[in-house]
Structure formats: structure tokens, C-alpha cells
Design a protein around this nucleic acid. Structure first.
Lengths: 234, 234
DNA sequence: CCGAGTCGAGAGCAGTGCTCTCGTTGTAGG
DNA sequence: CCTACAACGAGAGCACTGCTCTCGACTCGG
């Protein structure tokens, strides 16, 4: 996307470098979609007419390439959700929630390999770098903002719900994060449950476990969203 | 487990063969737990004092070994859930549901690698053999039996719930399976949602995505189960 | 214009899944 | 009891992987 970077003409070499990085990532994404999780750096290099060692000029290791793809995927999915949610009138709280969920599902179905990369079973070798929790939290942040508006509008009821003490402590700790602040604990708990439920439903479908069971997966997803929204009070 | 098999003494060679198969699978399971998903057949062989080609006398390929492990995992998890559910008085419907869910979570936390093997992102290469849907359906069968008893006891209400036509068709098709038969369509739909929700919650925790967010994951899981049970009417 | 840094190619190392061959050994049939 | 056969383990070897190192060619800033 950002080809020029900050300096519009900061040297030919630097420019073709960022182009090369982007080209490698694009090819890797294609291979990922075709072959599955076991990405072969050599095959990517071959596809680009390079020799494998040349790729190491751009990525220090295969894991680094994967990490870059993970970051990009988080970015793309987060952006898709934010856009979809922003397109709904602010006062239509239920619509905003549904649009966010639909955006997640649509993106995941469009990019199953990349979805598996970020929300599938974690790859053994590499632990997600810490600077990954930021991008990963963009969607929860969107969902939280919807719930915050719902609370402010007095839509969701929070009266008379009792939570165990340790859970309340955890929720209070989460509330320290500004993205999740100003949410009553029961609402935050229900929101997390909804988020997990959403990922569960999308993963179930994307990973093909709905295959010979449900034909109209979209209708089933909508049904799940209905019960979820009811649970949330939206 | 079954050392002798059908013939108590059907030859020394046959007996050490089944023992060898079991030993290979056990070692592979250990490696899987230690290293993660990328199981090395050569490393397993080395661990057993064999050369890699010798393993091919017992498993035609690495994928075959993995498939065997998947089958065993389905078996173990299914058995754990069936046992836990059977230990609850039949009339305690809510208790039976909760016990089943807790059994899934406990087994998954005890065997994270094997859980990832059966419920994580699917491995690219091999498609699950068709004879795998049987073992995989044991837990849904248990859950369905609970719901069936609940319907028979008049606990869950099904009045006035409208589902889209295509979804109803899918549910009707599922009802042809005796394991899911005799369930009103809305109940079956809610049951599937519950099952997906359960896997979502367990996967979220097992795959470490709850890490720096929730400390008392057990309490959070229980909370999720409460809302799930309420949704189901149990 | 020239030294310094960047780049791609190639060779090479250790590891992988898998195949094939070759002696050895247990076993079943005569 | 003996023999022919099947099963077995070891070893070599093939094609592939991630990754390192070296070596020329190139670009670019001072």
C-alpha cells in the first residue's frame, strides 16, 4: 500500500526494497492460500525468480515472514471491521454489532488461510511478539465501543447480576485498559463471551467443521448472531 | 491397552507388533506435546532407538501416524465426556450439560497438543478420513441426548420460535441422523450453537488467547457456561 | 569518482519425509 | 523337523526444507 513511505523519493534502492518486501509477502500469501500453513520460503523465492538466500536480505527468517503476514492480516481484518461498523448509523447499536460480526465472517471466508494464521491453533515455534496484542485488540475495541454506547443509551440492563469475586477482579483489571473502560463488569463479561462466541462460530465454519452438516451456513450464522445479540441485550 | 487382542496368544510377532504400534504412538504423543504440531517421524524413531525407515513398517506415512493420533484423541476425549456425563443423576439435566462441558475443558487443558490436533486449524495436507466423523460426533451425541431428555421432561420451551426456511431444512436433514433425532428444530439449533460456543471457549483458553487478560480462567469459563445454560433453558 | 554498503547467486550444512535394497529372523505349511 | 515365505531393522540415497557463508556485481552518498 504505502509505496513511497515518508520521503517521496528517498532513493531508488530504498523504494524497490519496500516493493520487494511487498512482493514477497504477496507471493507468500498466495502460497499460504494454496498450500496451507506450511509455507516454504524456498518455493516463494522460486516463484519470484530468486534464490532462497536472497529472501533473507528482506526477512531474517521464515518466522519473521510469517510474523509480518500475521501483522498484515490483523491490520486488514481490523480495518474491514472498523469500516463496516462505521458505515452503520451510530444509534443503531444492534446493527453496528451485527455489521462487525458479519465483517469478521466475510473477511475470514475470503481469506481463510490468513484467518487461520491469526486465529487458528498457534504455531509451535514462535510466540507472538508483544506488539501484536495491539492490532489483535482492534476488533474487541470496536465491540466494546458499541457496548459502551449501549450502556450510555440505557439499552442494556445490568441490574442484579452477580459475578464471582475472582472474575470481577479480572474484569476490573481489564477495565484499566482505556479501550475497555467505562463498561459495567457484567457487560464486559458478556461482551467477551460474545467475542469468543463470534470467533468460535467463524472458526467452526472456516475450518470446515460445518461441512456436511449445514448447507446454508450464512443462515445458521445469522441465527447464532440473533441469540448472541439477545444475550447481550442489543 | 488391548494387548492380547482377540486371540490371546496369536503369535509372538503379532503381539510385539501391536506393542510397537502403541509405543510409537506414545512417543509421538510425547513429541507432539513437547515440540508442537510439526511432528518429526525421524525424531520419534530416534527416540525409540530405531532408524526412520523402520517406522514405515508400522505406519505407511507420517500422515497416517497423525491420523491414528487424531483417532485416539477423539476416542479419549469422547470417553472422558461420556464418563463424566454418565456420573451425574439422569434427572439433573443442567448438571449433565455442565459436567460434559467441564470434561471437555479439563481434557483439553490436560492434552493441549492433542486437542489442537482435533479441533485446531486443520492440517493442510490431509483431509480427515470419512470414518472420523463417527468418533468426532460422540460428544455432540451426548449433548443431544441431554437435550432430548430435557424436551421429554418439558423443561425447554420451544413455542413460538421462528427459524429461516433454509436453516430449518438443514436442521431437518440433521434430524435424519438417529443421534440428533427427536429434537425440535429450535432446540437442535440452540444445541449446535452451544456446542460451537463450548469449543470456542475451550479453544480460546487452550490456545492461550486468554493469557494476559483473564487470570481465573476457570471462573470465566463457568460464567460462560451459565449464560449458555440459560440460553438453552437448562 | 571511489569506498562503503546492499544485493543476488551459489555452495554447503543439517535436518526432513519417503523409497529401495539387503541381510536376518520368526512363522506357518508340508 | 525342515524349508519357503513373510515380516523386520538397518542403511544408503533422493528430493526437499531452513539457514549460513562467501563472492562478485551493483548503487549511492560523500
Amino acid at each position: 500500500m504505502t509505496i513511497g513511505g515518508e520521503h517521496p523519493a528517498r532513493g531508488l534502492r530504498a523504494r524497490v526494497r519496500t516493493e520487494m518486501v511487498e512482493e514477497i509477502k504477496a507471493t507468500a500469501r498466495r502460497h499460504l492460500a494454496a498450500e496451507g500453513a506450511n509455507l516454504s520460503l524456498r518455493a516463494v523465492a522460486r516463484d519470484l525468480g530468486m534464490v532462497s538466500s536472497a529472501v533473507y536480505r528482506y526477512f531474517p527468517s521464515r518466522d519473521a515472514l510469517l510474523t509480518a503476514l500475521v501483522a498484515d492480516a490483523h491490520d486488514a481484518l481490523g480495518q474491514a471491521v472498523e469500516r463496516a461498523e462505521a458505515a452503520v448509523p451510530r444509534r443503531d447499536l444492534r446493527g453496528r454489532w451485527l455489521a462487525s460480526c458479519h465483517a469478521v465472517r466475510a473477511w475470514a471466508l475470503d481469506h481463510p488461510a490468513e484467518y487461520a494464521l491469526i486465529y487458528g491453533s498457534p504455531v509451535p515455534g514462535y510466540a507472538a511478539p508483544v506488539d501484536m496484542v495491539g492490532p489483535a485488540g482492534r476488533i474487541p475495541a470496536v465491540l466494546a465501543s458499541i457496548l459502551r454506547d449501549a450502556v450510555a443509551a440505557g439499552v442494556v440492563r445490568t441490574a442484579g447480576e452477580r459475578l464471582p469475586k475472582t472474575l470481577r477482579a479480572d474484569l476490573r483489571r481489564m477495565g484499566a485498559d482505556p479501550r475497555f473502560a467505562d463498561l459495567p463488569e457484567p457487560v464486559l463479561a458478556r461482551g467477551m463471551t460474545g467475542w469468543i462466541q463470534l470467533l468460535g462460530a467463524v472458526s467452526f465454519e472456516v475450518f470446515g467443521r460445518l461441512e456436511a452438516l449445514i448447507e446454508d451456513a450464512g443462515a445458521f450464522f445469522d441465527q447464532q448472531l440473533r441469540t448472541m445479540a439477545a444475550q447481550l441485550g442489543l
